[in-house]
Each structure stands twice: as C-alpha cells, then as structure tokens.
Amino acid sequence: MLLTRDTLPDTIADIAALDDLLCRPSQPLIDDLTKVDGDIMILGVAGKMGPTLAGLAKAALPDRRIIGVARFSDSSVKDWLRARGIETINCDLLDEAAIAKLPQAPNIVFMAGRKFGAEGDLSLTWAMNAHVPALVAQAFPRARIVAFSTGCVYPFVPVDGKGADESVAPNPPGEYAQSCVGRERMFEYFSRRFSTPGRLFRLNYAIDMRYGVLYDIASKVLQGTPIDVSLGHVNFIWQGDAAAQALRCLAHCDTPTSPINVSGHQILAVRDLAAKLGALLQREPMIVGTEQPTAWLTDTSQATKLFGLPVVDTERLIVWTADWVARSMPNLGKPTKYEVRDGRY
C-alpha cells in the first residue's frame, strides 16, 4: 500500500505497525528515486532515523541494492535491516582505511554524527561531525551525497517571522551546532573541489512515536512535569516524511552542494501544543517560564516547492502521540532537548 493522506491510520497499534508506516513509500518518492540510477548506501544507518530511511528506500526500490553502514553496536538494528532485504556492512567511519574498503555506491545518504553527550567529549563531537565528513567526501568524489545536517546551524530568529531560510548565514551558539557547520563546510569544500553533487539536509526535529518534541511535551503533561516555554516555538516533521524528502533529494542535487531546510511548514507554540495534548490526555499542563522572542526555526518554502507539504500533518501527529503516550508504549529514552537555548547537549 502506498502512503497517502487517505490511507493514514487513526491510531498506531504497536512498534511493528509504526515501522510499517514509517517505511511505506509514496508515489512521488518512487517517481523521484527512479530518476536516480544505482545503489544507495546509507552511512550511519544505525541511528534513530537511519533504519526508517533504509527501509523506506528498499520499499520504494525493491530491486535496488540498499546498503546500510554503521558500527552496529546494537546488533538488533542489523537484524531489523537484514529482515527487510537491506545489506549491512560494519564500519567505523573514524577509520579512513575502513572507509576506503566500502563499495563505491553512486548514491550516498550521510547520517553519521554526534549530538547527545556532545559536551561530554567535544573533541569526539568535532571528529564525528567535521573530520568524518571530510574523509567521506574524499572517498566518494563521484557520488551524489545527501548529508544530514540540522536547523541548529542557524542563529535564533524572531518567532513572529517565517523562520530562517537557506540564505541566512550559519552562526549558532554552542560547539555542537558549530561542529555541524564544520560538517557542512567539509562537504561544501570537497563538493567544489571534485564537482560532487549533493544537498545539505538541514532537518529540524523529526517526530517518531518513540521520541521527538511532541513525545517530550506529552510525557511531561501526563507526568505533571513542568514544561518550560522559554524556547516557546518549534517546527517539526513526521520521521517518514523527513526520510522520504532526504531520499528524494538524491534526484535534486546541486553542484556544488547546497542547503535545504526540512521540517513542518508551520511554526508552532509549545504552549498551544501542550494544551492540545493536555486535552487529549485529560491533564492540565504545568507551564513555566515566559516565551522568548527568538527560537531555532526554519523556513521550509524551498522543500515545500520541491516536494509538496508533508503527508502527515500536525493535528494527526498530536493525536497519534497522545494515544501512544496514554498507552505507555515504548520510547527511546532520548529527549530532543528542544528547549535548550545555549546549544549545550
């Protein structure tokens, strides 16, 4: 079954149903990927979003070779991928010799990076977020490279505007976000040097039932935990939509590589989201703090022009999340820390 707005379920029963939904391709995704020849290799596939992207690619291109590369410290991720027909390769991307042994796939989605715990070992954060991209960009000069980045490379912008568009120069607080600028600059430098086509995929907050901004807010509402609205505005996107847009970027690469913002098209108030989740969960949110006039927000007009609006809208995500949290369904134990203003993760 193809993914359309008309085929979305009212509730997501369990993790198996969630995985199936996340990996369900749309016709526009299939159409874009058929314009792109060759295998697809996903570097850093074992993170929160990697399995979704790999499974989605395989579902859209069942006869194409999809390769997932990671250290696979959690072997269950490898089992999950292989069960879906995705080839796996163990590789430490900090090892230049190991990178050199990888297949020369013509299409690469780069998802490796370090965020959580970044402040605990800043040298490792910079190595993963800037050194590894330089190694990869040199190892695959003839590939199309869609490199995951983050909206956190931008400075804070006014909450009453449209968000930062791709013309806004990166100038973020905190070394994590600065290292992400380093990642982009490495891909940009080698893209110019080798004429490597690509896109810098500036993603703001993917939503999966097991983690994300909505999960964080809903959990606090249910538990009666204070919700700080100092960073009071966000935008986010269903993880399946984000993965689909990343794959579709392979058909929309630029030479040299260029940034594209990906998130929901709406700027949403945390206070309003808490109220809607509270109504569904029959709990009164405990709001603390005062909304500041700026936040990390992106303008996704370019992505909307290329890909259309996300298939899953905000209201459905709110209903799905409230239902998931109310049933005490599993979570990944990885808060987004969306409320952090100093860039320290």
Rank of each mutant, 00 (worst) to 15 (best):
L2P: 12
R5Y: 05
R5H: 04
R5F: 05
L8Q: 01
D10P: 03
A13G: 04
I15H: 07
I30V: 00
D32E: 00
I40Y: 01
V45K: 04
G50C: 02
L53I: 07
A54M: 12
D63H: 12
G68R: 15
S73T: 15
K78I: 15
K78H: 15
D79T: 15
A83D: 11
I89E: 10
A97K: 13
I99N: 07
L102K: 07
A105L: 11
I108H: 14
A112Q: 13
G113W: 10
R114T: 15
K115S: 15
T125Q: 12
N129E: 09
N129C: 07
A130V: 12
Q138Y: 05
R144N: 00
V146C: 02
V181P: 03
E184K: 02
E184F: 02
E184W: 05
F187W: 00
Y189K: 01
R192S: 04
R193V: 04
P197L: 04
R199W: 03
R210M: 14
V234F: 14
N235Q: 10
G240F: 14
D241W: 08
L250A: 08
T257C: 05
T257H: 04
S258E: 04
I260S: 11
H265Y: 06
Q266G: 09
L268Q: 06
D272Q: 08
D272R: 06
L273P: 09
L280E: 09
Q282P: 11
M286S: 14
G289L: 02
T290Q: 06
T298D: 06
T304A: 12
D313H: 07
E315D: 09
R316L: 06
L317W: 11
T321Q: 09
D323H: 13
M329W: 08
M329G: 08
T336S: 08
E339L: 05
V340I: 08
D342T: 00
